[in-house]
Design a protein around this nucleic acid. Structure first.
Lengths: 102, 102
DNA sequence: TTTAAATATGAATAAACAATCATATATTTG
DNA sequence: CAAATATATGATTGTTTATTCATATTTAAA
């Protein structure tokens, strides 16, 4: 990285790329989307709503948790997931608001 | 997809995931970032600024063009790239504005 | 105290991506 | 037209990521 004044610095770009990558998947986007309306949802609830196979969903959820996008709390048999950083929602809002015809 | 009223529909989620995925890479984000300040830049200019190997950069650029994020126009020896949808910038702005400590 | 329900785990495979390299093509200029 | 410059292409390889499946773990309840 060199020569020109950057709007965003390298570190920020890398972080952004990292989170975008984590979220750039239909199912995972849908999860973030859901959790931006629903505060917290159990694996099962998400599973039902998204019609996603349980273990696959688990993989997604755990991955997103690992990468700092979700948090989870156990309550009896259930595990509830929620957005860790409410800020992730901004991304979603962005996508919504943008009438972009990509 | 079922049962619950969705904030974003499936198709939109898929499109969003698609574009996010395309952009979710440090170099490609940097390219979008650059082009959100610079209107148009030649491959060489981008190459120099980002210190990215020429053919690798070409691959990235062509890929992003293919996916509808960039456009290009040839001018003599040079090929100038620019953002196709100015809207992509919104994403970047989002990332900038979000003081998110992901 | 067995059974069922919810979730997680891990291995295995397949598919997508990133990077590198060598080379091709097109354009300009001497 | 030969050389130089800018860009593109394509094959190859290595790395990540996605999906599936079978099974383990934990908790609750009959």
């Amino acid at each position: 990285m060199a020569a020109v004044a950057y709007k965003i610095n390298k570190e920020k770009l890398e972080k952004a790329a990292f989170i975008l990558k984590t979220v750039a998947h239909p199912t995972r986007l849908a999860i973030v989307d859901l959790l931006s309306i629903q505060e917290r949802l159990s694996v099962n609830e998400i599973c039902t709503i998204l019609e996603c196979e349980q273990s696959l969903l688990s993989h997604h959820l755990i991955n997103m948790k690992l990468k700092g996008i979700l948090r989870s709390e156990k309550d009896g048999l259930n595990v509830f997931y929620s957005l860790k950083e409410r800020d992730v929602t901004k991304l979603i809002e962005c996508i919504e608001n943008c009438n972009c015809n990509f």
